[in-house]
Structure formats: C-alpha cells, structure tokens
C-alpha cells in the first residue's frame, strides 16, 4: 500500500467581488484551482509535481499539508486520514507532515534567531526540555550542513543557501515522515541549487523520508523524483515513472513543457513543439480537455470530457489522442 494517497482532491475558491454583478439565481462563481486530483507516493520515494504558474500545484501542496481545507477528496498519509481531522488531532498529525517553501527569506520570521526558528516545532510538538531542544537543534543543523555557530544569527545575517538550509532543518526538526517541498531550489543560485538538491536526496535516503517535490524546473524534477505528475489548469494531464515520462511524453502539454526546457548543450536542439497563447484564466473553464484552446492537435472530439487512460503500465495520460 502506498504511504501517501490522495483521491479526488478538489479545491475551489469563491470569487470575491463578483457577487453583486452576477445574476442572483446563478451559483456563485468559483475558481477550480484543483479539480479532481489523485496520486500515490510509496514510502521513501519522491513524487515530482510539475506544471506552470497557476496550474494549482502550490494549492495541492497546501491542501496535502492541510494549510488549506480541501473542498472535496481524501488525503491519507500513513494511517492518518488528514482530510477528516480538525483541531487537536490535526495539529498532532502535522508533526509528521512538514513543508519547505519557495522563498527562504519570506518563510523565516525576521525576529527569530535560527535557534528559535528551528526549535519552534519542537516546542509545539514535543515534550523535550529546553536543554534537549537545544541539543536537537544542534543535531539537525549539523544534519543539513550548517555550523552550530549560526544558532544565534537572524535570517538577514544568513546567505540564501544558509536560509534554505534553516528552513529544511525546521521542517525536519520533529523527524517527520513526509515532506512537501514547494519549489525549494527556485530562489537559489546555480551553485547553491546543486548543493541543496544533493542534500535533499541524501536526507531522503538516510532518514527514509517521503517527498512531494513541486517544481517548474523539469531538470531538477528528473534528478530527484522517481515518479512525475504533470498538472495543467488544476487537473492531472499525465503521470508516469520519471524515466518513462521524459523518454516518452504522450500528452501534448508535457511535450510542449519538455520542448521548452533549454538544454545546456548547443548541439542538442529539441524538436520545437509549441502551444499557442497563454494559460487561460481558471475562471473560464469549459467542458472537455482543458488544453484544447492552445493545443496544435485539437479537434472536435476534444470538446468531450477526457477520461485518463493507462497507455502502458503505470503511464496514465488524459488526452483523446494518447
């Protein structure tokens, strides 16, 4: 059985300000930020979640960690049914589910020292004495490759790489089993990025962590994830094991995404595969394939709802032509 299981996850946001103009007998307009997403992650593995801005990947992250309450669907992590928990049981369950955010500076309280920031989850979730907490902070900082003399420093005194390490240390302080990484390397410089990628991989192996790795950087996803889910406009368009997805992308959106990645070798020229226009507003959703207004392969059948299909073992595609 998989360690993390998400089924039929929906997150709809009501649109503010649209009320007085819309007709009264119509239902209030909603943005379907996440619309019926399902995925599984095996224990100790990394699932990559990719897609462009506005596809709903960060909303998925926030629902899975229950920072947002999902509109519908189930979220099971280990033996806990997160979608059903509220109050104290939810707070207790969060000890096992942690998150690392994209902007390492914004994610840290500027008025908290490194020691306080990293020990905060320990104060909330454990019964360790202050001396024990301090010992654990030292241990976890060493684990993420920081020297313990940063403990008294404040976020503005740290480099970008150090800040993200503090965020990772904070997420790992309570020894969680599942970590959601929302673009953890995007704000980092090239040389730091490589180090954080290697560190995340090493920590996963050594501590037996399970990751949901969210990124728009396909090369990093390829490096870290064993399985990949591709999202577009709140839905999953393709899902496969990493090697299979990168070798045989079947959905036009995945193909366009892969074709757009600039390869650091002038001799490798990818086949151009370009979608027209830009991502439409999630308010303007229609029936049928969400990509059809931009897809070069689109035809009349694409106005019909798409049923995801398994094209080869473990490779699922939501496209009429797959």
């Amino acid at each position: 059985m998989s360690f993390v299981s998400v089924r039929g996850l929906d997150k709809h946001f009501p649109v503010r300000g649209a009320g007085w103009l819309s007709r009264r007998n119509r239902p209030a307009p909603v943005v379907r930020a996440v619309d019926g997403i399902s995925f599984d992650i095996d224990r100790g593995r990394t699932l990559g979640l990719v897609g462009e801005s506005g596809c709903g990947k960060s909303t998925v992250a926030r629902c899975v960690t229950r920072l947002l309450a999902p509109s519908a669907g189930t979220i099971r992590i280990g033996d806990k049914q997160l979608d059903r928990l509220e109050g104290e049981p939810l707070r207790a369950a969060r000890r096992d589910v942690q998150m690392v955010f994209q902007d390492p500076l914004a994610a840290l309280n500027p008025r908290m020292s490194v020691e306080r920031a990293v020990s905060e989850p320990l104060r909330l979730h454990t019964t360790l004495s202050p001396a024990e907490q301090r010992e654990r902070v030292r241990e976890i900082l060493t684990e993420v490759g920081l020297r313990t003399d940063v403990m008294g420093r404040y976020p503005h005194e740290l480099s970008g790489g150090q800040r993200q390490r503090v965020n990772i240390a904070r997420a790992l302080a309570c020894a969680p089993s599942f970590v959601v990484l929302d673009e953890p390397t995007s704000a980092l410089d090239v040389s730091l990025r490589a180090r954080v990628i290697l560190m995340l991989e090493e920590l996963r192996e050594r501590l037996g962590l399970t990751y949901l790795f969210i990124s728009h950087d396909l090369a990093t996803v390829k490096y870290l994830a064993q399985r990949v889910v591709v999202m577009y406009l709140g839905t999953v368009v393709e899902e496969a094991d990493t090697d299979e997805l990168f070798a045989h992308p079947r959905h036009p959106y995945t193909r366009a995404l892969l074709a757009a990645v600039p390869v650091p070798d002038p001799k490798v020229r990818g086949e151009p595969f370009v979608l027209s226009g830009e991502i439409p507003s999630p308010l303007e959703r229609h029936e049928g394939c969400p990509l059809r207004s931009r897809c070069p392969m689109a035809s009349a059948i694409c106005a019909q709802p798409v049923v995801p299909r398994e094209v080869s073992p473990g490779h699922v595609v939501a496209c009429h032509f797959a």
Binding site: V190, A194, R195, I197, A219, K222, V261, V263, P264, V268
Partner: peptide
C-alpha cells in the same frame, strides 16, 4: 565553450546543473 570548457570555473558551472537530456553526476561548485 560547451565542447571544451577551458577555465576551471566554466567546467564547474557545466557540472553543477541537473540536465534534462542526460544523467549526470551533479557536482556543486
């Protein structure tokens, strides 16, 4: 430059990024 990076820094830069077209052993600078 990409075929034969001469400067050690250029070589280090090329090796420090994950690639979509091939498996490489990532080596941070």
């Amino acid at each position: 430059l990409f075929e034969r990076p001469l400067h050690p820094y250029t070589r280090a830069l090329v090796r420090s990024i994950p690639r979509i077209d091939q498996q490489i052993a990532l080596q941070p600078i």
